[in-house]
């Protein structure tokens, strides 16, 4: 029976997922993670492609069986109560699964019917949601004619047709242009204000910083760190970063000459990152040592730096 005593919308203990790939080898996509998502928060999974985010999301969506460990969604076990859980979830998948041959309105209408919502009610909701995602004027247009951003917004509208308590968004803005991303983020903020719990996977650190109250950094199937964006940056990085670009091939050699200027130095293929509380001060000292970078930049630390610190790799290859 549903456990209504817990306030956790989603909780996982030692959650694992493995499957056989095409060659028959066993892939461990998720290697024992613990998470807890609370009511009304925006929770993020940040990590590069292949970190296990999508596998985790599919288990939370109650469509992919759990290999081991315990998972409760809205207090229920997905192995036992899949349909009951799914009737209360909204899912916005990474790839658009809209019906291209139907018009915009029919995509919502037909989807609402899967949830057993009465016809009149679905029609009202569909029109309402089209306004919400700013597609009211496209009501009778074929899905094929929509831009990428519009399709994603329509997918979000579709995922809201059953008035979900949790909305799962898998890479919601991948492939969208900056303007379309901001429109979409704005809609997601509004949903959060209305009390919908958001669970988001992303490999964009700016998206995670913008949207998430709390997030876990995932890498190779495990959780590398957990906290609010600010907590994570404070715990795993410095306040500022000085980025120094030198001629190609000079970065390793130069790194030794500046290694004492910050708490830590990262060598990337195209630049050096010097982590310090005061980036301008680092630049002054670099110049004082007679080094002349081609370009410099001082910025605040971001989740990208946290990820680099925790895994030694960048998020977006």
């Amino acid at each position: 029976m549903p456990d209504l005593t817990s306030d956790a919308m989603i909780s996982a203990r030692g959650l694992r997922k493995s499957f056989d790939d095409k060659s028959g080898a066993t892939v461990e996509a998720v290697k024992g993670i613990d998470i807890e998502v609370r009511r009304g928060e925006a929770f993020g999974f940040l990590g590069p492609n292949g970190a296990g985010k999508s596998s985790t999301m599919r288990m939370i969506a109650a469509v992919s069986p759990v290999t081991a460990g315990e998972l409760r969604i809205l207090g229920m076990d997905p192995a036992e109560h899949g349909p009951a859980i799914r009737s209360r979830l909204g899912v916005c998948p990474q790839e658009d699964t809209l019906d291209n041959e139907l018009n915009v309105f029919d995509n919502l209408y037909i989807y609402g019917r899967y949830f057993g919502i009465p016809k009149r009610e679905v029609r009202e909701r569909a029109d309402e949601l089209l306004e919400f995602v700013q597609l009211g004027e496209k009501r009778d247009a074929k899905v094929e004619s929509l831009s990428g951003g519009m399709k994603r917004r329509l997918t979000i509208a579709r995922s809201l047709i059953n008035r979900p308590e949790i909305l799962l968004l898998d890479e919601p803005t991948t492939g969208l242009d900056p303007q379309a991303r901001h429109v979409l983020w704005d809609r997601l903020f509004r949903l959060k204000q209305q009390g919908v719990t958001l669970v988001i996977t992303t490999h964009y650190m700016d998206e995670a910083e913008q949207l998430c109250d709390r997030l876990v950094v995932m890498d190779r199937g495990v959780i590398a760190a957990e906290g609010s964006p600010l907590e994570l940056i404070r715990a795993h990085s410095t306040r500022e970063v000085a980025e120094l670009r030198f001629p190609v091939g000079d970065h390793d050699a130069t790194a030794e000459k500046v290694s004492d200027l910050g708490e830590r130095v990262e060598v990337l293929p195209d630049r050096l990152l010097v982590y310090s509380e005061n980036g301008e001060h680092v630049l002054e000292q670099v110049h004082a040592r007679g080094l002349t970078p081609i370009a410099t930049l001082v910025r605040r630390s971001t989740l990208e730096d946290v990820f680099l610190r925790l895994t030694g790799r960048t998020l977006v290859d």
Partner: peptide
Amino acid sequence: MAVVSTGATDAVVRDDRRLSPWRG
């Protein structure tokens, strides 16, 4: 209860068990 926007009724349709094959 999370309610997305207003206007239409706030009735929420929930399934608490598997659908019968017929309803599916």
